[in-house]
Simulated assay, not measured.
Amino acid sequence: MAIMDDVDQRLISALRHDARASLSDLAILLGVSRTTVRGRIEKLRQRGDIVGFTVVLQGDTKRDPVRGLMMIGIEGRGADRISRQLAGLTAVRAIHSTNGRWDLILEIGTDTLEELDAVLERIRRLDGIANSETNLLLATKKAG
């Protein structure tokens, strides 16, 4: 991703909030012309900073009644192998690499707490997992 200036960053933020906002509304919000907004969106798409737009349906947010974030610490250099193993688990919705205390952050979704517990136990048993911490997601205030 190329370096974005303040207008690009504010435009991305506005589109994350409402990807269907009109060029006119975005222009007013950003204090620039409609032509500038159109050009910036096109530039961001061509550069690959914006790779697409999506729709989030109400059913999508209800797909996983039990959701959690699992932070994982990995021993040694097994991150690639562990990431591949985690990607094969159907309950793992996303895998994020990160810096700081944790090496990976997983988004996990299941139908029940019992299923979540089984997934967590399976992940904890993977060779190379040094430690973990899991937090249940109680409510989503903003998605996407």
Rank of each mutant, 00 (worst) to 15 (best):
A2W: 03
A2D: 07
A2V: 13
I3K: 15
D5I: 03
D5Y: 05
Q9G: 03
Q9Y: 09
Q9F: 08
R10G: 02
R10C: 03
L11D: 04
S13T: 13
S13G: 06
S13A: 15
S13Y: 07
A14Q: 10
H17K: 14
D18K: 14
A19S: 15
R20G: 15
A21I: 05
A21R: 11
S22I: 12
L23V: 04
S24E: 09
D25N: 14
L26T: 06
A27P: 09
I28P: 00
L29V: 02
S33E: 05
R34L: 01
R34C: 02
T35S: 14
T35I: 12
T35W: 04
V37I: 07
E42H: 15
E42W: 07
K43I: 04
L44R: 06
Q46Y: 07
G48R: 08
V51F: 05
V51T: 14
V51Y: 04
G52S: 04
G52T: 06
T54Y: 08
V55K: 12
V55M: 07
V55S: 11
V56M: 02
V56P: 00
L57M: 07
Q58L: 12
D60Y: 07
T61F: 08
T61P: 00
T61E: 12
R67K: 14
I72G: 02
E75F: 12
G76H: 03
D80N: 10
D80W: 00
D80C: 00
D80Q: 09
R81W: 05
R81Q: 13
I82T: 05
I82P: 04
R84A: 10
G88A: 08
G88I: 06
L89T: 11
T90P: 10
T90F: 02
T90Q: 10
V92L: 06
V92E: 05
V92H: 06
H96I: 09
T98I: 02
N99F: 13
N99R: 05
G100S: 05
G100C: 06
R101P: 00
L104W: 06
I105C: 08
I105H: 04
L106Y: 07
E107D: 11
E107S: 09
I108E: 01
G109E: 07
D111A: 11
L113Q: 10
L113H: 13
L113I: 07
E114A: 12
E115D: 15
E115S: 14
L116C: 00
L116F: 14
D117P: 01
D117S: 15
A118V: 08
E121S: 12
E121N: 12
I123Q: 03
R124M: 00
R125W: 01
R125T: 10
L126F: 11
D127T: 10
I129G: 05
I129C: 06
I129F: 04
A130Y: 02
S132I: 09
S132D: 11
S132M: 11
L136Q: 04
L137Y: 01
L137K: 09
L137F: 02
L137H: 01
L138D: 02
A139P: 01
K141Y: 10
K141N: 11
K141Q: 12
K141C: 01
